[in-house]
Simulated assay, not measured.
Amino acid sequence: MARRPTIKDIARGAGVSESAVSFALNGRPGVSEDTRARVRRVAEELGWQPHHAARVLSGERCGAVGLVLARPAHTLGVESFFLQLVSGVQEVLSAGRTALLFQVVEDIDAECAVHRRWWAERRVDGVLVVDPRTRDPRPELLARLGLPAVLVGGTGEPVPADSPPPLSSVWADDARAMAGVLRHLHGLGHRRVTHIAGLPGLAHTARRITSLRAEARRLGLPEEHVRSVPTDYSDAEGAAATRRVLAEPDPPTALVYDNDVMAVAGSAVAAGLGIPVPGRLSIVAWDDSALCRVTHPRLTALVRDTAGFGRLAAEELLALLAGGPPRARESELPRLEPRESTAPPAAAY
């Protein structure tokens, strides 16, 4: 194994003392600008990097942020949302030479344990927290640890200026987007709509369900005709839920899915049952993807820049680490893109 270059190697290559190398690399006075430039050039040629443990012990930032995902592992391989989100996060972090420490765990308790371990080991300078819960222990834990964090998909409520540590939030208005979906379907003539929802404990799932019910009341639709059915976001549960609701005596004429994978699975179930889309069933997918655009018929979907959402979250975390104030930043409102999977319902089902 090749030996890592040391400060002694740099001193020998630059023709200066080891203390001069330390002054030059740490930006401290005591050496001329010419010497500083020569030392840094030699360090770069040798491929020298500061020792992580030494930097941490000296009180410097470790140059990494963390992201823990508490989702069933089998639901991640087919869902594009997190891949796009992480690509946006990584784009910003790479530009700032900040590493992303990523881990997948089974549940929220395991995620809290990871945060505690990262804090104790000083592995990260801050964390991105995804999938806020309706009863979420993570903000209190992070405040107690003093670990800066950004809640990705928060409520948009103002963050207290004296929050210890700074907890920021980036969010999109899921409630307004869901209301817009129901208004679109209602305008087409649909009066029986079922929402094939995601995990029930997630805050954004609760917001969508609440918004759907409120908009249904505003439109004068009976409560039993507009409802939500929770799933785990997987294609298997999305298909099973679709099969159940379509087998009911008065099945829905429109289905709204909480992700693209379930919407595609639901479309396949309808085809297998001989129910034409959109002739007898309209389908809407949350978060557009290539799947929605290549499926036949192409699926009506809510479109947003998911990578841009990730970039916004990473920018906010870096701003916190630079000493900026905590704040809530709103991302773009998801926009409904009507395609071939939605149409007025048939006169008789």
Results as ranks from 00 to 15, higher is better:
Ser228His: 14
Val245Gln: 06
Ala270Asn: 02
Pro249Met: 06
Ser228Glu: 13
Pro276Tyr: 04
Ile275Ser: 09
Ala270Gly: 09
Leu273Ala: 10
Thr231His: 05
Glu223Gly: 15
Ala254Leu: 10
Gly272Cys: 03
Pro252Asp: 13
Ala271Trp: 11
Ala270Trp: 02
Val226Pro: 01
Pro251Cys: 02
Ala271Cys: 04
Glu237Thr: 15
Arg244Met: 13
Asn259Phe: 07
Glu223Trp: 04
Ser267Trp: 02
Val277Thr: 10
Pro276Lys: 09
Thr242Val: 05
Leu273Asn: 00
Ser228Gln: 10
Tyr257Ile: 04
Asp258Val: 02
Tyr233Asp: 11
Gly266Phe: 11
Val256Leu: 13
Gly274His: 03
Asn259Glu: 01
Asp260Leu: 07
Leu273Gly: 01
Ser267Leu: 15
Asp232Thr: 01
Val269Thr: 10
Tyr233Cys: 09
Ala240Phe: 00
Asp235Leu: 11
Tyr257Met: 03
Pro278Tyr: 03
Val261Pro: 01
Gly238Ser: 11
Tyr233Thr: 13
Pro252Lys: 08
Val261Asn: 03
Gly272Tyr: 00
Val226Asp: 02
Ile275Asp: 01
Ala270Glu: 03
Ser267Glu: 07
Leu255Met: 00
Ala240Arg: 14
Asp260Trp: 14
Gly272Val: 01
Val264Gln: 02
Val226Ser: 01
Tyr257Arg: 11
Asp250Val: 10
Ala263Ser: 12
Gly279Ala: 12
Ala236Ser: 10
Gly266Gln: 08
Arg243Met: 03
Ala240Val: 00
Pro278Glu: 00
Ala254Thr: 10
Thr253Tyr: 07
Ala240Asn: 00
Val256Trp: 04
Ala239Gly: 11
Ser234Cys: 14
Ala239Cys: 04
Pro249Phe: 04
Thr253Ser: 15
Tyr257Asp: 05
Arg244Thr: 13
Gly272Trp: 02
Ala254Arg: 11
Val256Gln: 12
Met262Glu: 12
Val256Ala: 11
Val229Gly: 09
Asp232Ile: 06
Val269His: 02
Arg244Ser: 12
Val261Gln: 10
Asp260Ser: 14
Gly238Trp: 03
Gly272His: 00
Asp260Cys: 06
Arg280Gln: 12
Pro230Asp: 03
Gly238Cys: 05
Ala268Thr: 11
Val256Gly: 11
Ala271His: 13
Arg244Phe: 07
Thr253Cys: 06
Gly266Cys: 13
Leu255Arg: 00
Arg280Ala: 14
Thr242Tyr: 02
Pro230Cys: 05
Ala271Asp: 11
Pro249Gly: 07
Glu224Val: 14
Ala268Ser: 14
Ala240Pro: 02
Val261Trp: 00
Val256Phe: 12
Arg244Leu: 13
